[in-house]
Design a protein around this nucleic acid. Structure first.
Lengths: 345, 345
DNA sequence: CTGAAAGCGCTTACAG
DNA sequence: CTGAAAGCGCTTACAG
């Protein structure tokens, strides 16, 4: 077995490099971190020594004097939820591109454990992203007082927020349904406390108003496929010929139950989901859905955070809300929606 | 606005507590970390002071003297891949339960960036989990020389490995198909270099041998739905009446193309996937698939790592491979497989 | 049981 | 441009 000089064994520090290069450790630190504050010659000397010893800096040790850890935390309510997949991906890749490390944590849908998790992260991260947080607004503000915080999928006064604009997608969806002969459209809601669900319902109702269509709110037991199945009866009873669902899982469950009841999709009934989650095109017919740019949300949140980092200027940084112009939802038309052939008389 | 004593502002250190409690900082450290090495009275004193100041320890600062960071790294090839989600979830929840923080990174399917990512993690984590690594065996061994490493979905000599036992699930699947009248069964393979694909194919072939069925290997362009669609022609041409696919995405693509060609599932053809990914039950018919206990894999990997941590005894810890008994695959029968009604003469 | 000291690996004013 | 020193927040032998 070849044992190269870069053997994986002991940890090499800047002192080892200093010795090899014949300079002071502080010079090594500068050469590696602030090239330019060091002569070209020594820089090369140090770089060679570092390479020779296969040095890689200890970010934790660096974090102590500087306060910058190079890590950003991402807290999601439920790792299971496919809706978060893209947020995680977006944040992860944006972080990686910036040389930052993503620390992932889950709050298990609980506001109180979310607070605990956030506190734990506090000292080891440079900034924290809260995706669809369960904490209260004041708790979030408190957290953001100590460290840059960005919130995704919710608007919190005084805190950087990125929330996709639901209006364009919902407008498209309602127009799509209206132009296909649907007069009464149901909305299957998310959980009652959900900020997002309320927002989507509001936007939906206005869109219906503008289009002269009737909007019917239908409550669900849970924002899951099972919740969608259980809501099917109410949907049928409502007399609506189409449904927009708070999320894709609800839509998929609704479709399943409708099909079990021999309702023909989309000839007799149209279903539209929300989020365009992984697998929403696995169904037959494939699900029409409103896509949220979640990947971009993750990236955008990181962008806000980064802007909040270095300045540390005077007082709190200005609060920015990303949304309206950059992050718009769009309708993805697939097979589950279309012209109503058998209008309910 | 109520400004409690636990204001979120400045960071409080053990020195603040020491002052408030009227003891030395080292005593604070002991009281918080090693209660029992301190009198009950001072312990309470310190605890109260800590609570009063809303103290939370800085894990990074602790890491420097102890070498224990409280973080474990998880590197996956592709965060996009739904097959990894359960691994991430399993590792995340196991870590959380142990008070550890999960650091997530992605190698983008590239062995070389995987090495870079791993190096970067090296000094900030206590241990590293490689899920379906792209690094070479020697690279993995090198990494494991410096820090506990566990590998999921692959066997690497000299490195803790956890790989689900594919045999039980594949055996079940083949028996299921055989008993439903299928004589010739196709296997849609994954990528040619995939350790896992080779393993699954081998196991499948033996199962067919035992059962007296004919196994037919069919190469695919990529382990994706698109790959499955493109393979459909070869599958039909092969004369097989059923297919076991390397993963669910392939199976779903194959189903779509077969249905587009008016092949009736499962009456004329049976499709079985692998992994039971999220959404595999969204299809019509729902996909029969072999479930791997990926969540348990994540947890198991963490278990191995933990065992490797404290001992630091003499020489390398014994290598353990988790698999055979604990982590078995099982067949999940849904609608895409069943009795062959129109046997190919 | 508790204090004083040294050190973990790095950075950054401060001198020169 | 470079060195020597002090310090980031904690822990842990070492004395007492």
């Amino acid at each position: 077995m070849v044992k190269s000089s870069s053997a994986a064994g002991a940890k090499v520090t800047i002192y080892d490099i200093a010795k090899l290069a014949g300079v002071n450790a502080s010079t090594v630190s500068r050469a590696l971190g602030n090239p330019g504050r060091v002569s070209d010659k020594t820089r090369k000397l140090v770089e060679h020594a570092a390479a020779e010893l296969n040095f890689s800096i200890n970010p934790l040790a660096r974090a102590l004097p500087t306060g910058r850890t190079g890590m950003v935390g991402l807290i999601v309510a439920d790792i299971t939820n496919p809706g978060y997949f893209d947020i995680i991906r977006g944040a992860q890749s944006a972080a990686a591109a910036l040389g930052l490390t993503l620390v992932l944590a889950e709050s298990s849908e609980s506001g109180s454990t979310e607070v605990v998790v956030a506190r734990r992260m506090q000292s080891s991260t440079d900034a924290i992203i809260l995706a669809t947080p369960r904490m209260s607004d004041p708790e979030i503000r408190a957290l953001s007082g100590t460290k840059p915080v960005a919130v995704i999928n919710r608007c919190v006064d005084g805190v950087d927020s990125v929330v996709p604009d639901v209006q364009p997608g919902i407008g498209e969806a309602v127009r799509h349904l209206a132009s296909n002969g649907h007069q009464k459209i149901a909305f299957l809601s998310g959980s009652a406390q959900s900020w997002m669900s309320a927002r989507r319902w509001d936007s939906f109702r206005s869109a219906c108003d503008w289009t002269g269509r009737e909007a019917q709110l239908i409550a669900t037991t849970a924002p899951t496929a099972e919740g969608g199945r259980l809501a099917a009866r109410d949907v049928i009873a409502s007399g609506a010929t189409a449904a927009l669902c708070y999320n894709d899982l609800l839509a998929i469950g609704l479709m399943q139950e409708l099909q079990a009841a021999k309702v023909n999709l989309p000839d007799e009934f149209s279903v539209v989901g929300f989020d365009n989650i992984f697998g929403s095109d696995f169904t037959t017919p494939a699900l029409t859905t409103i896509a949220s740019p979640f990947k971009d949300c993750g990236a955008a949140a990181l962008g806000l955070l980064l802007a909040a980092l270095p300045g540390a200027g005077l007082g709190p940084a200005p609060v920015r809300t990303v949304g309206p112009m950059d992050l718009r939802t769009t309708l993805v038309v697939r097979g589950s929606s279309g012209r109503l052939l058998t209008p309910a008389i």
